[in-house]
Deep mutational scan, measured.
Amino acid sequence: YTAFGDLEVFLHGLGLEHMTDLLKERDITLRHLLTMREDEFTKNGITSKDQQKILAALKELQ
């Protein structure tokens, strides 16, 4: 049995499950992801397509 964390649930909701391992390897938490700047997305290997999905979701949360 494995409990999913906030990061996994957030990514799954956006259809971005493939990013879970990448972000965990880089010790990026959901809190960090929510406050990242555009250059940090790129530096951490997050594609512009995935970045757009994340940023759109963040706008909806605000």
Rank of each mutant, 00 (worst) to 15 (best):
N44H: 08
H12Y: 12
D6L: 00
L22C: 09
A3G: 12
E38T: 09
E8D: 12
Q51A: 14
L16Y: 00
D50R: 00
D39L: 05
D6P: 07
E60I: 13
R26A: 04
L55W: 07
M19W: 04
L23F: 12
E38M: 05
D6M: 00
K49H: 11
T47P: 13
E40Q: 06
M19D: 01
H18A: 07
H32C: 07
L14V: 14
V9N: 15
V9I: 11
H12G: 14
H12N: 15
L34V: 11
M19A: 08
L14F: 11
E38C: 05
M19S: 05
T29H: 06
V9D: 15
E8W: 03
E38Q: 10
K53N: 04
Q62R: 13
S48P: 11
L16R: 01
K43M: 07
R26K: 13
V9K: 15
T20C: 12
H18T: 05
T47A: 11
G5D: 12
L11K: 00
I28G: 01
L16T: 01
A57D: 05
L22I: 08
G5A: 14
L30K: 07
G45K: 04
T20K: 13
L11R: 00
L23K: 02
L23H: 01
K24Q: 07
A57N: 10
Q52R: 10
L55V: 13
K43E: 10
E38R: 07
L11H: 00
T42W: 06
K24V: 06
E17M: 07
A56M: 11
E17C: 09
T29C: 06
R37I: 03
T2G: 06
L55Q: 14
L22R: 14
T2E: 05
D21Q: 11
G13K: 15
Q62W: 03
T29K: 07
Y1Q: 05
D39V: 05
G15Y: 01
G5W: 05
Q51E: 06
K49G: 10
R26C: 01
E8V: 03
F4R: 13
L11D: 00
L22F: 11
A57R: 13
F4K: 15
Y1T: 10
R37P: 10
Q51W: 04
T35Q: 12
D6F: 00
K49A: 13
T2V: 03
